[in-house]
Simulated assay, not measured.
Amino acid sequence: MPATSRPQQKAAGAALSAKRGETKKSDLVGASKDMYETMTERELEDLASTDRQGLPDKKG
């Protein structure tokens, strides 16, 4: 499932980093914190690996 916007891709990357222990969970806020708590590492990898080129700045 590819990311649908740049902010979504960025939030997924932050959540994935925390899932892997590279950053602190307490550093997460907003969407990245929700993603960390509700998504698997594999789901986060799929979103975070989306190429940013061509993604809109806003979803919608």
Rank of each mutant, 00 (worst) to 15 (best):
M1N: 12
M1Y: 04
M1V: 13
P2K: 12
P2M: 11
T4I: 05
S5E: 06
S5F: 02
R6V: 15
R6F: 03
P7A: 01
P7M: 05
P7L: 06
P7V: 04
Q8K: 04
Q8D: 08
Q9K: 10
Q9H: 01
Q9C: 08
Q9N: 07
A11V: 05
A11F: 03
A12K: 00
A12S: 00
G13F: 02
G13M: 03
A15C: 05
A15I: 08
A15T: 03
L16D: 01
S17W: 05
A18L: 06
K19A: 05
K19R: 11
G21M: 06
E22Y: 13
E22L: 14
T23Y: 04
T23I: 13
K24M: 13
K24C: 10
K24P: 11
K24T: 12
K25Q: 10
K25M: 07
D27E: 14
L28P: 10
L28V: 07
L28A: 01
V29R: 01
V29N: 04
G30S: 12
G30N: 10
A31E: 15
S32R: 02
K33L: 15
K33M: 13
K33T: 07
K33F: 09
K33I: 09
D34E: 14
D34L: 13
D34T: 13
M35F: 00
M35C: 00
M35D: 00
M35W: 00
Y36E: 06
E37T: 14
T38E: 11
T38C: 05
M39Q: 07
M39V: 06
T40V: 05
E41P: 02
R42H: 12
R42I: 14
R42V: 15
E43A: 12
L44I: 00
L44T: 06
L44Y: 00
E45V: 02
E45K: 03
D46H: 05
D46R: 06
D46T: 09
L47H: 02
L47N: 01
A48I: 04
D51H: 01
Q53D: 15
G54L: 08
L55M: 09
D57C: 08
K58Y: 13
K58Q: 15
K59T: 03
K59F: 00
G60H: 10
G60P: 12
G60A: 13
